[in-house]
């Protein structure tokens, strides 16, 4: 991910008190302020971004580079150095706060025109460093802006339910024999085998449904991408996630995807849940296709 950086300099390695004046000049190297980059677009006005709070008390502002505009904010270098930031993002509450603040700015920017979100925690030691790095990738940003312009992302997840129909087969009609009854051990084994078989059948049928859903929605979408499925137990989740995907659609495509998902739900049957989220700023289609 970010380990391709040539020089992993960290803001907090520098003496924080190296500067006497207030930390306001953006184009002068300033050891106390780092530049957080939220997103890149073609053009934003300062007033477009004024409503977003971001991560610090400083205003969220546009930063021009190579004919494009980044959405940035000054953040205190001491709080956003490598160790300090890694520590903070390791705290679930702080991570959530940062993720939501980042997302709020990205969403506000996207309301003003095509916007390519940056990964969380894209940070530079000042505007000049940010401008240089962004300019080096200006071609990628232009390509990505072409791709996402006028389009939004929809998230679709498919789950297999643990209590799906047929998950409790093999219980003999006459009830379960008591532990001391003759044949109890064999009945138990048969029962366990039945449960196992049903579980496997449920799983493979859910996986088939996932493939069908993905094929059907990919056909509707400009682009599709499968994200890593969430593990068992995610957020207290007890269902098995079998598909975690994102689809890029025109802004007008909400009805189409809703109708398609409704139809897929009808076809999928009882043991499978299909959930959608969105519209998202096209995070999943901002990077390399």
């Amino acid at each position: 991910m970010t380990d391709t950086a040539p020089a992993p300099a960290t803001a907090h390695d520098r003496p924080a008190a190296a500067q006497d004046g207030p930390a306001t000049a953006h184009d002068r190297p300033d050891r106390t302020v780092a530049t957080w980059v939220f997103a890149v677009g073609r053009a934003y006005g300062a007033e477009d971004l004024a409503g977003a709070a971001g991560l610090s008390a400083a205003p969220v502002r546009p930063l021009a580079f190579a004919g494009l505009t980044a959405v940035v904010q000054d953040v205190p270098a001491a709080l956003f150095g490598r160790e300090a930031l890694t520590e903070r993002l390791s705290d679930p509450g702080e991570l959530e706060r940062c993720a939501r603040a980042h997302h709020a700015v990205v969403t506000a920017a996207a309301a003003c025109g095509p916007t390519v979100p940056m990964a969380l925690a894209t940070l530079y030691l000042g505007d000049e460093r940010a401008r240089a790095a962004l300019t080096a990738d200006a071609g990628r940003f232009r390509t990505a802006l072409e791709r996402v312009g006028g389009r939004v992302e929809w998230g679709v997840k498919v789950y297999a339910r643990p209590d799906a129909a047929g998950a409790r087969p093999g219980v003999p009609a006459g009830g379960v024999p008591g532990p001391d009854a003759p044949g109890a051990g064999r009945a138990y084994l048969e029962r366990m085998r039945g449960v196992q078989r049903a579980r496997e059948e449920g799983r493979s049928s859910a996986l088939r449904t996932a493939e069908e859903v993905h094929a059907a929605l990919s056909a509707l979408a400009v682009a599709a991408r499968r994200l890593r499925p969430h593990g068992p137990g995610a957020s207290g989740e007890r269902r098995t996630q079998v598909l975690n995907a994102a689809y890029l659609l025109p802004e007008s495509g909400a009805d189409r995807i809703a109708a398609a998902v409704e139809e897929l739900r009808g076809r999928a049957g009882a043991g499978v849940d299909i959930e959608t989220s969105g519209p998202w700023v096209p995070y999943s289609f901002a990077g390399e296709a």
């Binding site: 950086a5 997302h103 990964a119 962004l134 994200l227 998202w280 995070y283």
Partner: peptide, 20 residues
Amino acid sequence: LLDRVLATGVVISGDVVIAI
């Protein structure tokens, strides 16, 4: 949200490299 802000979005080299 974490799926997206951590695993997607444009990744370019930054000055402050955190080990996401």
